[in-house]
Amino acid sequence: MQIHNISQQNSILNNFISEIRSVTIQKDSMRFRRNIERIGEILGYEMSKTLHYQASSIETPLGISPINLINDDIVLCSILRAGVPLHNGLLNYFDKAENAFISAYRHHLHNPESFEIIVEYLACPNLDNKTLILADPMLATGQSMVATFEALKPFGTPKEIHLVSIIGAKEGVDYVSAHFNASTHLWIAAIDEKLNEKGYIIPGLGDAGDLAFGEKLQR
């Protein structure tokens, strides 16, 4: 898998990452969602440099302007609910993309440290020969990303796969690397050192879904 860790080069991305991590600033849920959206825009822009283009021409009021335009059929799939702001950021740049949504959550079996990934709701267009962008803001264990992709397989075989995350743990990056083929791209804003005993990223930022939309009842 090809890993693109955007934080390895200093940019305005650092500001948005610092704000979603800050225990003070992240309490503003509207600002948290907007920062996730802006990070999605940056990751989408960086990813766009690797897509396929074809020569086109645009008629202006004063003449003809040659330009290369994206020639990929894109399907943007996000994992509910935390993935919604990230989805919006990517959709701001890939506004002609088709869209898919899937719910995946941790179901704790007997204790807080043991869980399985449950996939329930799924809406997806045909994926055959399309460019799939699979977005989940937190790449912790990597199990949600893999379970989501397995659930999408009946909808067709994409020609390319791009994974997009905001913050990941090395363990999660290694896990998805082992489960996706070598041509898959991972676009990520920061990679943290480890997971805690409950499978949360350290130092991370907390629960992205709760920060964006409010606390939930566990089931």
Rank of each mutant, 00 (worst) to 15 (best):
E41I: 08
K130R: 14
R106E: 04
L163M: 01
E19N: 11
H52A: 03
E193C: 01
N71A: 13
D192K: 03
E113I: 01
E113R: 05
L109T: 15
E113A: 14
S29I: 00
Q2P: 00
I42P: 00
L109N: 07
G83D: 00
E46V: 03
F94A: 07
T184S: 03
L90M: 11
I36W: 10
I70R: 05
L205H: 12
Y53S: 06
H52C: 05
N111Y: 02
I17H: 03
I25A: 13
T184L: 06
L152E: 08
S103Y: 11
T131H: 15
P85M: 07
F32P: 08
L134Y: 10
R219Y: 09
Y93V: 12
I117A: 01
L80P: 03
V146C: 08
I42F: 15
I191K: 04
V173K: 08
H52W: 02
L43P: 08
K130A: 05
V146N: 06
D207P: 09
R21I: 05
Q26F: 00
P66L: 11
N92C: 06
R106Q: 09
I42M: 14
A140K: 06
G206P: 07
E150D: 14
N68H: 15
G156W: 09
F213H: 09
S18V: 05
E37M: 15
K170Q: 15
I17A: 01
E41N: 10
P85F: 12
R38Y: 15
M47P: 01
D73C: 01
A82W: 06
P112K: 06
I36M: 13
E171G: 04
I102W: 11
P66G: 02
I12F: 15
T141I: 01
S57V: 00
I161S: 04
I25W: 08
S29D: 11
I74T: 00
R31K: 15
P154K: 09
V23C: 02
L217E: 13
I58R: 02
N111K: 15
F149W: 07
I6D: 09
E197G: 05
I6Q: 10
H52L: 00
N68D: 15
T157S: 04
D207V: 07
L211Q: 09
E59V: 04
L122G: 05
D72N: 14
P61Q: 05
L122A: 11
C124V: 04
I133G: 01
N99Y: 04
I161F: 02
I64R: 10
V119P: 08
L217N: 13
T60C: 08
L122M: 13
N129T: 01
S65N: 11
F155E: 08
G209L: 12
V119Y: 08
S183T: 08
D207F: 12
K130N: 02
D73V: 03
D28V: 02
F32D: 08
K27C: 07
V23S: 15
T131A: 03
K96S: 14
A82G: 07
L109W: 03
E37C: 12
L86W: 12
N111F: 02
F94E: 10
L205E: 04
K153P: 03
T157A: 01
E160V: 00
K194D: 12
S177G: 10
G142E: 06
P66C: 07
P112W: 07
V176A: 02
L51F: 13
L91N: 14
H4P: 05
Q143H: 12
M47C: 13
D210Q: 11
G83C: 04
H107P: 00
M138E: 06
I6E: 14
H87C: 11
I166P: 09
I25R: 11
